[in-house]
Amino acid sequence: MSETVDVSKGLPAHPERATLEGKNKFVGFWVFLSGEVTMFATFFGTYLGLRNGTAGGPEAADLFHMPLVFIMTMILLTSSLTSVIAITAMKKNQFKKMKLWMWITFFLGVAFLGFEIYEFVEYVHYGLGFSTSAFASSFYSLVGLHGAHVVFGLGWVLLLLIRYNRAGITLTNAPKFYMFSLYWHFIDVVWVFIFTVVYLMGIGGG
C-alpha cells in the first residue's frame, strides 16, 4: 500500500498507528486479546467448577498466604504503570526514557515470575502435586497459563530491548513496543482476576 506518512515534522504523535502496518497490528492485536479473554474465561470456569474437588488433598485455605500474593500483585500492578510511562515517553520521542522504563518493567516481571516459581515449589513441598486432585490440576493450569504468558512477554520485551538498543524510536519499532505494553496490561488484568477469584476467594472461603 502506498500510504505516506508525513515525517518532515518529526515523530508523529501516535507513532504506533502512523503507518498502515502499525494500524493493522493495532487492530489485530486487540482482536487477539479479545480471543484471549474467552480462552482465559474457559480456564477460570474450569477452576471455579473444580475448586472444591480436593479429593482429600490440601485445600485452598491451607495453602494460600496473603502476604505473598499481595506482594506479587503490587509488583505486577507497578510494572503495568511503568510500561504506561514508557509508552508515554515513546510518543514524545524520548527514547532513553522509554528504554529505562521498559527495562524496569522487565525486571519487575522477572521478580514476579521468581515469586510465582517460589510459590509453586512451596505448594509442591506441601503436598499439592499437579495430579493430586482436580483442584490442584485446575489451579496449576490456570495460574501456570498466566505464568507462561508472563514468560512469553518477558522474552518478547527482552528481544525488543536488545534489538533496538541503539535504534531510537522508529515507525517500525514503535508498534512493537506498543503491542507489548498492551499485552502486558492484559496480563495484569488477568492477574487481577486471579488474585481475586483464586487467592482471595480461596482464603475467604465461600
Binding site: 467448577g49 473444580l50 474437588g53 499437579f130 495430579s131 493430586t132 486432585s133 482436580a134 490440576s137 493450569s141
Partner: peptide, 15 residues
C-alpha cells in the same frame, strides 16, 4: 495425569 475429568480425584466429566 491432570485430574480434570475423573470423578475419583474430584474431577467432573461434564466439563
Amino acid at each position: 495425569d491432570g485430574q480434570f475429568f475423573l470423578a475419583a480425584a474430584g474431577g467432573n466429566a461434564v466439563i
